[in-house]
């Protein structure tokens, strides 16, 4: 089943009088259960493409469909609604809310969905990332790897169709990077959750089933890994 479809996407950033073409007519389709990485050198457009798939940004031209709904016709609040039930995010920086505990960070997307009293669900997710004993810790009381694992649990909280991860291992040491990737791979295999990564980290690429290579805002290569 096709989860995300992007057709002829361009994205031009206007900074003063300078135009930057981040994406130049990209077509991309992502099916359920994929474990895809977007790779390419800095400035190739992989983060911008990931943000298009994640409905965080709107293209200058082209269309984005998520679960057969056209995102490019939606307003800001409609996109926020779509995001919170459909897409989970994991960022390069450990993007947790610093005032909330690990438990509360994982619980937040559920609360935003109006789902209260989800203690067993939250604990199950923390358990899945091996952090049930850190539930009451705040981000500043956890290591980078632990924070990123909480971010993974948070991304999974609402059972999203799609999880987007932008350089998830960039700030982690080898051991933590491997640990995060194996958790995500396991979730992909066990729950068929779709993962799309933007990265140039070989540790991530080696787990991928599909590698999409970008260069200068265009897809240069799209290959499936056996």
């Amino acid at each position: 089943m096709e989860i995300a479809k992007l057709t002829d996407i361009t994205r031009i950033y206007q900074i003063g009088e300078v135009e930057t073409h981040a994406l130049r007519g990209v077509d991309l389709s992502i099916d359920e259960g994929e474990f895809t990485t977007l790779v390419g050198p800095s400035g190739s457009g992989k983060t911008t493409l990931l943000q298009m798939v994640g409905c965080l940004d709107q293209p200058t031209s082209g269309k984005v469909f998520i679960n057969n709904e056209e995102v490019t016709k939606m307003n800001r609040n409609q996109r926020a609604d779509l995001r919170k039930g459909t897409i989970g995010f994991i960022f390069q920086f450990f993007a947790l809310i610093p005032t909330l505990t690990a438990y509360e960070n994982v619980e937040l997307p559920l609360l935003l969905m109006g789902k209260k009293n989800q203690k067993s669900r939250v604990m199950e997710l923390l358990d899945a990332v091996g952090l049930s004993d850190r539930a009451e810790h705040r981000p500043d009381q956890m290591s980078g790897g632990q924070q990123q694992r909480v971010a993974v649990a948070r991304a999974l909280a609402v059972d999203p169709l799609l999880i987007l991860a932008d350089e998830p291992t960039a700030n982690l040491d080898t051991e933590n990077g491997e640990q995060i990737m194996s958790i995500m791979k396991k979730l992909n295999e066990e729950t068929n959750t779709t993962f799309v990564f933007a990265t140039h980290d070989p540790r991530v690429i080696k787990y991928a089933k599909r590698v999409v290579t970008l260069r200068d805002g265009q897809i240069e290569k799209d290959e499936s890994i056996a």
């Binding site: 926020a80 995001r83 919170k84 993007a95 947790l96 809310i97 969905m113 948070r154």
Partner: peptide, 8 residues
């Protein structure tokens, strides 16, 4: 981050 999580 809150916006990405779907906060309006």
């Amino acid at each position: 981050i809150l916006g990405a999580l779907g906060m309006k």
